[in-house]
């Protein structure tokens, strides 16, 4: 339901005529929702900007939020939701910032004392427009939050899979946290690439930080070991806690001829012994 050009121009007049009054009421309603988490001055500035955005859209004769004249308003709304999302406000609090305009408008129309059937129809039309604006805000809020979440997931992936050099020709991967397919893939690729880059013939996979080992995790680890073998490097699995050892046996997971050690220290000792048994490459 778009605004007719008459309604739009009356809306614009209303916004213009009661500009200060409207901003004041609007800010008050929003501020009561935020309970002092944003300063009054800051809110007043944001609401003032939004109000000018609405006014510009109405002046441009925008019947709808998708219209060209509403471009600036859309920009303001998505800016608002971006800031709110990054500052950690809830979706509710973000949407209320826009919905509050309806209450402020109603207050002004009521106060003018000349309310008739036309005013009512106008108010319903304005409300519909504000609703669409609020929904748009909500959409942008969700989008920004999703971006934040996916960014964080990526950062977590980067952070949690370091490959460290322990000794000459020995690298270690301390696995921390749950090992799902995506992470297992990243760990595998990074480990194999490090083996090539450092030409280390030994790798220790330390699973001390893995909370639980199931068949899937074991499968991922085994694949990594087999791939490393194909490239000519030997993997040792270390950091197997007593409960994990019991789980592994209970599940019937076979590590075959892959060396497993209880601690990283044991694994390193084992590798150094293997390493000294054969002449150095250089």
């Amino acid at each position: 339901m778009a605004l007719s050009s008459d309604e739009a121009s009356r809306f614009a007049d209303l916004l213009k005529g009661h500009s200060d009054e409207l901003t004041r009421r609007w800010t008050e309603i929003v501020a009561s929702n935020f309970r002092g988490r944003l300063s009054h001055a800051e809110l007043e500035r944001q609401m003032g900007e939004l109000q000018r955005g609405f006014q510009a859209a109405m002046d441009g004769g925008a019947g709808d939020l998708d219209a060209d004249a509403s471009g600036e308003l859309r920009g303001l709304l998505s800016d608002l939701s971006t800031t709110r999302a990054r500052q950690g406000f809830s979706a509710n609090e973000t949407a209320v910032s826009v919905y509050a305009l309806k209450e402020a408008l109603l207050g002004i129309l009521d106060g003018s004392g000349e309310a008739d059937a036309t005013t009512l129809r106008d108010f319903v039309a304005y409300s519909a427009f504000v609703d669409r604006a609020a929904l748009f805000t909500f959409d942008s809020y969700v989008r920004v939050r999703e971006e934040l979440i996916s960014d964080q997931a990526e950062q977590l992936l980067e952070l949690s899979t370091p490959v460290v050099k322990l000794w000459d020709g020995v690298v270690a991967v301390p696995l921390v946290g749950t090992l799902d397919s995506a992470r297992a893939q990243v760990v595998m690729e990074r480990l194999l690439q490090t083996l090539v880059d450092t030409s280390s013939p030994y790798a220790i996979i330390d699973i001390t930080g893995v909370p639980a080992v199931d068949t899937q995790v074991a499968q991922h680890v085994l694949k990594t070991v087999v791939a490393a073998r194909l490239m000519g490097a030997e993997c040792i699995i270390s950091g197997i806690r007593p409960q994990i050892a019991q789980t592994i046996v209970a599940l019937g997971i076979e590590f075959g001829d892959i060396a497993t050690k209880a601690t990283l220290a044991d694994a390193l000792r084992h590798v150094i012994k293997l390493n000294s048994a054969q002449p150095k490459a250089r």
Binding site: Q193, K223, A227, L230, G232
Partner: peptide, 11 residues
């Protein structure tokens, strides 16, 4: 052998 080749062969 490249890592990508090794991973493909294992898969």
């Amino acid at each position: 052998m490249r890592p990508a080749v090794a991973i493909t062969l294992v898969e």
